[in-house]
Amino acid sequence: MSHDDKNKENELELDHEYDGIKELDNPLPRWWLISFYGAIIFGICYFFYYVVGGAPTLRDEYNKEQEVHHAVRAEYLAKLGAFDVEHFEKIYTNESVIQYGESLYVANCMSCHADGGKGDIGPNLTDRFWLFSFGNPETVYPFILSGNPNGGMPSWSDKIEKEDIYAILAYVLNQQGKTYENAKQEEGNEFPPWKPGMRTEDYF
């Protein structure tokens, strides 16, 4: 510390002393004061703008965000098209549809049907045995929609968009014939594997 500093410090020294501790009377740093008052002024403005001034609330912002989001979803679903077997046959091998179906499967179905559909709490979806359908898209689709409370399958019609079930179905049917370690044993009746062109009446 230079001499000048020392002298300046002596001038600033107050006659306070506590257990040898002295205090200087340095002024508050200007930048500190600016940030102190600045934050308070910001706070007051912010509060009045958002609480009194009618600025959008968090719920307003959420609703707006949801609107945009629903539009994105609607656009995508429109691209996927409505359920119909012939259309399904055209797109069910489409890699991006399968991938999208897989993400939905992971989020909604995997907790019971396990990884890849090898079955756990819910039945195995990779084999040719089916409990409540024939294993063809036309009969599996309505089963996913309405579920079967006695069999433990929940209804998904109010949880997943109908068109999304379409993508899940694409993923699941492409899992047919895959083998997994620790796959669940067969349950239900055996049906011939579904191929494009097969219709429900072909199973009788």
């Binding site: 020294e13 040898g20 501790i21 200087l24 500190w32």
Partner: peptide
């Protein structure tokens, strides 16, 4: 506020700042 000035054996920088920052 006790141990820093004791350990360095120097006066506390600003008494005024102590007051303002304590109460705020």
């Amino acid at each position: 506020y006790y141990f820093v000035p004791k350990a360095i054996n120097r006066p506390v920088y600003s008494y005024r700042l102590s007051i303002i920052h304590f109460w705020s």
